[in-house]
Amino acid sequence: MTITASLPAAITARDHYAAAPDLPDIHLPVRVRGGVAGFVFRQPTVALGLFILAIMLVLAVFAPWFGTLDPTALAPAKRTRPPSMDFWFGTDAFGRDVYSRVIYGARVSLVVGFAVAFFASAIGLLIGLVSGYVRAFDSTIMRAMDGLMSIPPILLAVALMALTRASVQNVILAITIAEIPRVSRLVRGVVLSLREQPYVDAAIAAGTTTPMIIKRHILPNTLAPLTVQATYICGSAMIVESILSFIGAGTPPMIPSWGNIMADGRALWQVKPYIIFFPAVFLSLTVLAVNLLGDGLRDALDPRMAKRL
């Protein structure tokens, strides 16, 4: 089959060996299981990550329909109840239902995680592209990024939160600023290595303009590592949000988030560990799911692996 094709087009095997019968392909097609079952079989980690993340998303979006109470309603008579049929995850020191608070808390974590991943990637991509392509700005931009990176992201986020009032938007902004240097460094590194690729030189020789080279040759090859990085940023942003809320510098106390639920349970954790246990489990599971997804995406976005997904 391939032998025929590699000869000059004018001479095909058929002309010479007219009597030769058509033989079946030696490599019989391998039956690939399709559908959901096949996907789970081939990419178990991605499937697990997607599954957990989907559950969290459904819980967050449809929180009022999952047998939740008002997560902020105080009930001093029912405080610090252990888990029971009435209060699945127990109640906290103010008698608030921990189950309801954890389910509603998923909203903050997911919004912060996705928003930070999106904005940090977008802004980091822009900064990285400029830095990698415009040599005149490179050292200045990168020294500024190094400066930002020398401060641990949590400290930087705490410092930024101290400048403003507590709100989810400000938490997103603070964590985004703290994550940008890592993204722009990654993008710059990828851009610098890509622009030295012979196929970029060949494209220059073929008369492609610089904007088209960025669009056609640089960006598509940057998006795969960037997407993978974005998932890790998403996970890390969720953790930083929880830490900020835990120390009282993040989401305001009126809005339940996994961080401030844990903060509320902190004083009682030795006698009533369930208050801190459930939000911690949800946080860990969600971050794990996002990271599993990131690992899967890294493989899936490689065109050499495209057949497998």
């Binding site: 690729q197 012979p198 196929y199 030189d201 060949a202 020789a205 073929a206 598509p220 065109p303």
Partner: peptide
């Protein structure tokens, strides 16, 4: 640029994957 073209050494990195 049309008049001068190039073929590189490494057949793997000279084509955009």
């Amino acid at each position: 640029r049309r008049r001068v073209q190039v073929v590189f050494q490494d057949p793997f990195s000279s084509l955009n994957p």
